[in-house]
Computed example of a mutant assay.
Amino acid sequence: MFRSRARAAKLTERQGGGEVRSVVLLLPGGFVRSRLRPLKIVEQGLQELAAELTERGCSDGIAVHLLHYRYAGWNGAAADTASDTRWALAELASRYGDVPVVLIGNSLGGRAAFWEAGHPAVVGVVGIAPWLPYGDLVEHLAGRRVLIIHGDRDRSQASAAKSLDYARRALAVVPDLARYEVPRGSHYLVKQADAVRALTTAFVLATLGTEPSPLANGGLRTPLPTRDTRAG
């Protein structure tokens, strides 16, 4: 009788050279529920960010990986995306040892990043239009650096209102948490991708101690300057 092989999560090949002194793990978006394979186009949306992080961080020993999930969806109590992220963190530790890790999650991947930010290797977490349902825990963020970027017109399941509520609750344990809103930004932030990528990269490098912090002290709705910033 033919039996299909069980799916397994997988890390992309390492980007970056030299001795590894830190790691950036990119977690792409997906769906609330789906047992299908992840869409390649969703992963491709993080490739330019991975390339910029690799270029800027190569001389500092930063290794960049993207996680291929088993499934395209979170899938309720199974929390498949978070489970795959836990596997990836264990795998990175086995490859590189005790090095600091920054998690970057987009949409669905944002929830996985924040869920797993309590891992002892994690020093920072970035959510780009993250899906952060009301009531998700925040206490484990203590001691981490946190950045959230969200379009102010995102009314999807991963809405800006939800990430704002999450950020307000997280302030109790992360007093210097930074949250930026992208003016006129929808969930996908395509037109504002350059500005989002620049801030994310600068934040990661600052978190890993290679560059000064780029963050402004403007509250939890700090406007992210972009070429698309217009009145209206």
Rank of each mutant, 00 (worst) to 15 (best):
L66G: 11
D152H: 10
Q157M: 08
S4H: 10
G30L: 01
G57R: 06
A79C: 11
P175G: 01
R7Q: 09
V123Q: 12
R111C: 01
A77W: 06
L147F: 03
Q47D: 12
D98G: 00
L66W: 11
P120D: 09
S94G: 09
Q44W: 07
R145Q: 15
H187A: 07
I148E: 02
P225D: 12
L25W: 08
R197K: 10
R144P: 00
E55M: 00
S163M: 02
A160D: 09
P223F: 03
V23G: 13
L205D: 04
V182T: 07
S213V: 01
V125W: 09
N217A: 13
S163L: 02
A167D: 03
L208E: 08
D228F: 13
R35D: 10
S94C: 00
I62M: 12
E19F: 05
L215H: 09
A72E: 15
L49E: 05
A170G: 03
Y188L: 14
V101C: 06
Y96G: 10
W131L: 01
S159Q: 11
R35C: 00
F203V: 08
V101Q: 07
R184L: 07
L189M: 07
L147S: 02
S159K: 12
G109W: 15
E116V: 00
V102M: 12
A63D: 06
S107N: 05
S163F: 07
K162A: 12
V125M: 02
A82P: 05
R3T: 14
L46M: 15
G61A: 13
K10P: 00
V99Q: 02
A82M: 03
K10N: 04
L132C: 04
F2A: 07
V146H: 09
A216E: 15
R144Q: 02
P225Y: 13
R95Y: 08
G127H: 05
E116P: 00
L171D: 02
G135T: 10
K162Q: 15
T85Q: 04
L46A: 03
A231M: 01
S156Q: 05
T12A: 11
R95H: 14
G16V: 03
L11N: 12
A9R: 13
R155V: 14
D84W: 15
R33D: 11
A206R: 00
A198T: 13
A193F: 12
N217K: 13
R227Y: 03
A8I: 03
V182A: 01
V126M: 03
